[in-house]
Amino acid sequence: MQLLRVQIGLLVGQVEELALALPAGEQGRCLALASVGEARRKLRAGLPAGIGPERPAEQLERMRLALTYHLGELEAVGRMTVQGGQRDSEPCGS
């Protein structure tokens, strides 16, 4: 499980960097940032025990899959839309 936590930590940074590089109105940006925030909260708080030892590992794996999905989507969008490397740090919904 520790390996999953490390992978998620690395993915959080990559997804956040790519999401913040996109314009504030870009589709998928806010979803990716929400996923990053949720992953950070869950990693900090620790996962609930669940029903048996596999439950926390399943939850971590779902987080990893969601972040991997967002990473792929952001990379694809970034190749099409980001020009000049400008970073927009405004939060979603402002």
Rank of each mutant, 00 (worst) to 15 (best):
K42H: 12
Q86Y: 13
Q14D: 15
G13F: 11
P23V: 09
L33N: 02
A21F: 03
L4E: 15
G78S: 01
V15K: 03
Q7F: 05
C92L: 13
L20M: 13
G84L: 04
R29T: 00
G28T: 03
D88Y: 13
A49K: 15
E38V: 05
A24L: 09
L18C: 01
S35F: 00
M63H: 03
E54K: 04
A76I: 05
G13M: 12
L18S: 07
M80H: 03
C30T: 05
G28R: 06
L20W: 10
L65S: 06
R29V: 01
G84E: 04
A66P: 00
L10G: 14
C92D: 06
A21T: 13
L31P: 00
Q7M: 08
R64E: 10
L60T: 07
Q2K: 06
Q59G: 03
E58Q: 15
G28Q: 10
T81G: 00
G46K: 07
Q83M: 09
R41S: 15
A32S: 11
A39P: 02
R87N: 03
G72D: 07
S94E: 14
D88K: 03
L74D: 01
E73Y: 13
C92F: 07
M80T: 02
L65H: 07
R44V: 09
Q14W: 11
Q14S: 14
G72A: 06
R64S: 06
G25T: 07
C92A: 04
R79Q: 14
Y69S: 09
L10W: 06
C30F: 03
A39H: 06
G13I: 01
K42Y: 06
A57T: 13
E61F: 08
P56I: 02
R64M: 06
R79Y: 02
E58W: 02
V12T: 11
R41K: 15
E16W: 08
G93D: 02
L20F: 10
P91F: 14
M1R: 10
G85S: 13
L31A: 08
L74T: 02
R55Q: 09
A76G: 04
E75A: 14
L10Q: 10
L10Y: 07
Q2W: 08
L65N: 14
A24D: 13
S94Y: 05
V82M: 05
G46A: 06
L60W: 11
E61S: 15
A19D: 00
